[in-house]
């Protein structure tokens, strides 16, 4: 261990507080008993769709297209999920099969 228990506790407290601040800030700025500006309500309506798109990109951010395996396992798994989900419309099936395909590819094919 590089630091004392007290230092570790302080560090964890700081990180926990800062994390909670990022979660709570919108609710602190726009409390229930005050009218939320129309612009913020508009953002609240459209952001879920944009944020989910951003989150997908965030998950795939470390995929390299220029070095082996050239993002092939990711691309194949994503296509499987999209195709299966549009066909069967079963959330757990799409997630389960997509993840299994990805695991097989990274463990057996593109080692």
């Amino acid at each position: 261990m590089a630091m004392t228990n007290t230092q570790a506790l302080i560090l964890i407290a700081v990180i926990a507080t800062a994390t909670q601040l990022t979660r709570a800030l919108p609710f602190i700025l726009f409390p229930e008993n005050k009218k939320t500006p129309g612009y913020i309500l508009y953002l609240g309506k459209v952001l879920p769709y944009a944020a989910m798109g951003m989150l997908v990109v965030y998950c795939l951010k470390n995929v390299s297209l220029t070095s082996s395996p050239f993002g092939i396992p990711d691309a194949v798994a994503v296509l499987c999920i999209v195709a299966l989900h549009l066909w069967k419309k079963n959330t757990l099936l799409s997630i389960g099969v997509g993840t299994a395909v990805y695991m097989l590819l990274v463990q057996l094919v593109f080692k």
């Binding site: 879920p48 769709y49 989910m52 798109g53 989150l55 997908v56 998950c59 795939l60 396992p73 990711d74 798994a77 994503v78 999920i81 999209v82 989900h85 549009l86 959330t91 799409s94 997630i95 997509g98 993840t99 990805y102 695991m103 590819l105 990274v106 463990q107």
Partner: peptide, 20 residues
């Protein structure tokens, strides 16, 4: 060998993206 299982999160977000 569990390598690759963290892809389950990516899969979840993709499926939700499609549903949305």
């Amino acid at each position: 060998d569990t390598s690759g299982i963290d892809f389950v999160m990516t899969a979840l977000f993709i499926v939700i993206f499609i549903n949305q």
